[in-house]
Amino acid sequence: MSNFSVSFRHRDDICVLDLTGELDAHTAAEFEAALQKCVTEGDCKLVVQGKDLQYISSAGLGVFMAFIEPVRDGGGDIKVAGLQPRVFTVFDLLGFPLLFDILDTEDEAVARFNGSPADQS
């Protein structure tokens, strides 16, 4: 029934999480486990690649909220890249662009890590 999957890639010291499918209340646990794994393994520079993400519910957004603090405390950040317009709307409505770096492409997100430090207000 679950049509959500998450996989890991590494680009240098940055961990890229590819999200595919629909991130809702049922699949949020899977994403949460993936992020937990990153944090446990000490990966703090995270890029969430969302070009194949079809849908996100408030429970899915809640996972981002849950992890942003420990990740930033560890000196890293969660950056979101490549969201489809429909999914971006959900992020945008809640005001996520004010809290997260949401970028058009994965390369931009990686560059943001490597270039200027995260300019979070």
Partner: peptide, 19 residues
């Protein structure tokens, strides 16, 4: 009507008010 505004619980206060 979609003026800016953060969700409740995303920020403790200053950013919420400012935006």
């Amino acid at each position: 009507l979609r003026a800016d505004g953060l969700g409740i619980g995303l920020d403790a206060g200053p950013l919420f008010r400012r935006t």
